[in-house]
Design a protein around this nucleic acid. Structure first.
Lengths: 265, 265
DNA sequence: GAGTGGTCTAGACCACTAC
DNA sequence: TAGTGGTCTAGACCACTCA
């Protein structure tokens, strides 16, 4: 399928060589990685490395599929996954182009893991409490269990650069996993859950603010009345079980939630 | 394609009638609405109305497609869209089931429109300023334009139940749309942009908190030093142009951000 | 009118799960 | 071993955009 040599001045700009023409994609059919996924990854890295610049057209799907030796649905699946990520935009009658945005690295909306791993610079965790308690009303409601049922209470103080950043209070259904205090101090809760075979699926969050009580101020090294960010969250696994309910407070002077939204069409 | 009469005691539980068997789906091939979308909508409403209860299996895709007179890819497309919404879960070798979750109504993560339309009960908007000004440094950076370039400045006070809730300060590229003050007071900014043919695509947000200054306190009816929720946002259309940069402050005593996250796998 | 993505079909083989 | 979803193919027709 050698493409017709296009640069022979018919009409004005002939086939309008897409930015993709110069790129080489290596597809390994013997790999267990799906073909559409291999293609999507290589397209994504081409966009990240600037080989595909914002606004560049990808060239039509039919050509692309014949050039790659794939069927059109497979190519579409690859492209669709990048559209879902917000890297590409499709326009009927026009083509598919790289999104022309300043936001190149969308801060993974699924910050479920990330925002518990603190913003990069060497976070530390101090486990304040790790014990079993009967569930209070709000906890029972959050986890969807009976009031008074036994739950694991986990209180942690998270710091970065030696300064307290947040106080995390979490409740977990018992017997879900064993929460080793040592491991909790060296990693995040979600990481632990993941290694225990729990597949996180969704979470419901409420983010608010309020003034610090004297106790909270002392704990976090703020002044009484300082503004705090608050978050309540219930996380569910893929069977719909509530696997965690938490109430977190953050020093507003040292932390903010930062994320990207994609508008679903 | 009459299904084989299944209830004649072979083996133990024969075909394990899926919860779907009793449901009727009406597909209109002459409708401009895609078939996969019609199916997805009817499945979604069946889930919402409880006809499909959490944990129910959907029955395999092949049977479903023959029963509906659709191809399997089309049925898969419908199911996939609900999986993406977090309503269904697929397990290879097992089947597709309704997610067993307390969270039935995921609060549309794309709250880009919604959180500017206030939480339900008759919000009102008072336009404080609506004029053209040169862009300051942070505004220019947020919109990706030159410092000092002319932008539209929009300041609004939003109330609910006659009480102030938020103060919204937005900057827009000039000539993007004409911001009629009357219409701004009767609807949201995004609604206006949408009617002007602007397709919102993504937004980058930062949510934080701080204490109210005396001016802010007076404006919002809070006491000086009260906790405020702050949000900075840049919104982009589908070509990647920044179409809005805004700085909002919310009374923490009357407002909180509330949303659901889906973990992408 | 030419070109694009949007939708749809009717098959196929494979990997994984459960029994 | 049977049944499931995961992947893939090679076509087809339509709706929309743009010149």
């Amino acid at each position: 399928m050698t493409p017709p040599t296009a640069r022979n001045g018919d009409r004005t700009r002939t086939v309008a060589a897409s930015a993709l023409d110069a790129l080489h994609f290596a597809l390994d059919r013997s790999s267990p990685v799906p073909l559409y996924y291999q293609l999507a990854q290589q397209l994504e890295s081409a966009i990240e490395h600037g080989a595909l610049a914002p606004g560049n057209l990808l060239g039509n799907e039919i050509d692309l599929s014949t050039r790659l030796g794939l069927s059109r649905p497979t190519v579409r699946q690859a492209i669709q996954s990048l559209v879902d990520k917000g890297l590409l935009v499709r326009r009927r009658g026009v083509g598919t182009q790289v999104v022309h945005s300043q936001v190149r690295r969308p801060l993974e909306l699924s910050s479920l893991y990330d925002d518990l791993e603190a913003a990069g610079q060497g976070p530390t965790t101090q486990v304040v409490r790790n014990e079993r308690v009967p569930a209070a009303a709000d906890v029972a409601a959050g986890l969807g269990i009976a009031e008074g049922a036994e739950v694991t209470l986990l209180e942690r103080l998270r710091s970065a650069h030696g300064q307290p950043v947040a106080f995390l209070c979490n409740y977990l259904p018992p017997a879900l996993l064993d929460l080793d205090t040592d491991r909790l101090e060296s990693t995040g809760l979600y990481h632990l859950m993941r290694s225990a075979g729990i597949t996180l699926h969704s979470a419901r969050q409420t983010i608010g603010a309020r003034a610090a009580t004297p106790e909270e101020a002392a704990l976090l090294g703020e002044q009484e009345g300082a503004a705090l960010l608050t978050m309540q969250r219930t996380a569910y696994d893929d069977t719909g079980r509530a696997v965690e309910y938490g109430t977190h407070i953050y020093r507003a002077s040292r932390y903010a939630f930062d994320f990207q939204l994609l508008v679903r069409t």
